[in-house]
Structure formats: structure tokens, C-alpha cells
């Protein structure tokens, strides 16, 4: 028996990667990948936060204070040596706490320099931001005019631009690393419990807690929609139709979430919820937490004073 012709044809829909024959990828696949990534991230970081280690043992309240305090310090420091010195210490602590280095180092430093670097690249040239020339790229005989724009005759990389760019990338990368290290080592619920002891009103904490849970409910509802669509998808549909599908999915999901909020409210009422919020009390701090906090405060002050001394 012979295969009919249409079966042996290479159809874009049969491409195994699900790209639908398009180079840039299919929106369904992309959305499904995003969903998987979100869930994977959440599960993974929860797992790391459960491992034994120095940072994991620390009280979440201390970590929240330290995170905000150190972020301010890092953003006030204007010296690369201080910033990188701080980063090395942070990295040492992360290694000590058995955080996965791949997550802490690679994901930050592969992504940040790329995005921030592209953003900052034009500013290192004197045509965009004037400054002292460090390295002359081109020297035209006369100033250039392009429409109403005029450029000086020398195109050069400026000292200010270059150092400013390196500074920005370092600062962004180190800030992100700090946040990654402290959030990876803390369980989400502990983090929220810590926030509650500070300045955040109860209603916000409770909303945050519920939101975090329902994100996963809604995300899996969304996953089902997209999987169902993928199962029915044969060949290539028009972008217009695809957009309509996405809009319907958003609208449908909105209806679903409204209905769910109604049901959740009734379920809560049935269990005695009257609008008053009661939360569990957190444990008291132990001496090592206080010690770590004082060390962090001192380290921050040292950085600031060193920054002033270096001018």
C-alpha cells in the first residue's frame, strides 16, 4: 500500500519543535514554556530554601531588613572596588549556604550585562554623552551634520561613559544577586510572615498570601487552555485568529477568576471568616540572628564610610 501524497508532504504543523514552520516560534509553545518556567522556578527555590545552611537558618525578619539595608548601601556606593569587594563576600556566604552557584552567578551575569549593556552602550560614545576621549575611533575632517543634528568631528569612547557603563552594570548585577541570594534562601511564607512584623498592613499580607496561592491555580487553568488549543491546532492559523484566541483566553480567565473569588469568599465565610484578619505570631529572635544583624549593619556603615574616604 502506498502512502497518499498529502501524508508525505512536509507540513509546517508537523515540525516537532511546535514552531508551526515559523522561525520565531509559536505563541502557544512560548506561553506553555513560560508557564512551566514559572512553576519550575517556584518549586526549585522552595526546595533550596528547605536545605540546611547558614542563610536558610537565619530568621526571615533579619533577612528582610538586611536585604533592604544592603540594597540601599550598594546603590549609594560609587566605587567599583567596594562594590566588587561586597559581591565577593556575598558570594562566599552563598557558597557557605550551599546555594546553587549556577543560579546565583550564571543567571545574573549572563543576563544583566546583555540587557543593561545594550541599553548603556550608546552612552559610552562622545556623540551621545560628551566627555573626555579615552579611545578615538574615527576622526572626520569636519563636524558632521545630519538633519538638524550635528556631531563633533571626533568619534571617541569617553572615560566617563565607559566607567559609568561599567558602574551601572556592576550595580544592577550586584543588586540583583543580593536579592536572588536572600530570596532563594527564604521560604515564601516565611518571607511574608517577616513582612508582617514590619510596616506592612495585615490586609496586604493576607492578600499577598492568597495571591501567591491563586497564581498557581490561575496559571494551571491557563496551561489547560493552551494545551487544549495545542491539541486542536493543526496547520497554521492566521495571526488575527491567534490574537482573538488570546483575547478570549484572557476574558475567559477573568470570568473564571471572578467566579472563583466569589466561591472562595463563600468558602471562607462558611469557615467563620468575618472580615477580621487573624495571623499566627512569629517566633522570637535568637542571639545569633541579632549578631548577624549587627554585623550587617556594621558592614554597611563601613562601606559607606570607605566610600566617603575614597572621595
Amino acid at each position: 500500500m502506498e502512502l497518499p501524497d498529502w501524508l508525505s508532504e512536509a507540513s509546517p504543523a508537523l515540525c516537532r519543535c511546535g514552531c508551526g514552520g515559523r522561525r520565531k516560534g509559536n505563541f502557544i509553545e512560548k506561553t506553555l514554556r513560560d508557564i512551566v518556567k514559572i512553576i519550575q522556578d517556584a518549586v526549585f527555590s522552595e526546595e533550596i530554601a528547605r536545605r540546611p545552611g547558614f542563610l536558610q537558618r537565619l530568621d526571615a525578619r533579619i533577612k528582610v531588613i538586611s536585604l533592604i539595608y544592603l540594597l540601599i548601601i550598594v546603590n549609594l556606593c560609587a566605587h567599583l572596588s567596594l562594590l566588587w569587594g561586597f559581591y565577593l563576600v556575598l558570594l562566599a556566604i552563598a557558597v557557605l549556604s550551599k546555594l546553587p552557584l549556577r543560579q546565583v552567578v550564571a543567571r545574573v551575569w549572563l543576563v544583566i550585562p546583555l540587557f543593561t549593556g545594550i541599553m548603556v552602550l550608546p552612552s559610552i560614545f562622545n556623540w551621545v554623552r560628551p566627555g573626555d576621549p579615552l579611545w578615538v575611533i574615527a576622526d572626520f575632517p569636519h563636524p558632521l551634520h545630519l538633519g538638524y543634528l550635528s556631531f563633533p568631528s571626533v568619534l571617541a569612547v569617553t572615560r566617563q561613559g565607559l566607567w559609568g557603563g561599567i558602574m551601572l552594570i556592576s550595580r544592577v548585577g550586584i543588586s540583583v544577586s543580593l536579592a536572588v541570594v536572600l530570596t532563594l534562601s527564604t521560604r515564601w511564607m516565611d518571607f511574608l510572615r517577616a513582612l508582617r512584623t514590619f510596616f506592612v498592613p495585615k490586609i496586604f499580607i493576607m492578600t499577598l498570601e492568597m495571591t501567591y496561592r491563586y497564581i498557581f491555580v490561575l496559571v494551571s487553568a491557563m496551561e489547560e487552555m493552551f494545551l487544549a488549543r495545542k491539541a486542536r491546532d493543526a496547520g497554521q492559523s492566521a495571526p488575527k485568529e491567534e490574537r482573538r484566541f488570546v483575547a478570549s483566553a484572557v476574558g475567559g480567565l477573568f470570568g473564571k477568576s471572578l467566579q472563583m473569588s466569589e466561591e472562595v469568599y463563600w468558602a471562607m465565610t462558611a469557615r467563620g471568616y468575618s472580615g477580621e484578619i487573624r495571623l499566627l505570631k512569629s517566633a522570637s529572635l535568637c542571639w545569633s540572628d541579632v549578631l548577624v544583624l549587627s554585623l550587617v549593619v556594621l558592614a554597611g556603615l563601613i562601606l559607606i564610610v570607605a566610600n566617603k574616604v575614597m572621595g
Binding site: 508557564i35 493576607m206 495571591t211 496559571v219 488570546v246 472563583m260
Partner: peptide
């Protein structure tokens, strides 16, 4: 809460 979860989810839709 569910509105916030919805707004988080909206940002995941690829158009």
C-alpha cells in the same frame, strides 16, 4: 487576591 493573581497571569500571555 484573585485579581492580583489574574494581573500576574495576564503578563504571561504571549500575543
Amino acid at each position: 487576591s484573585i485579581g492580583a493573581a489574574f494581573s500576574f497571569t495576564i503578563m504571561m500571555f504571549n500575543i
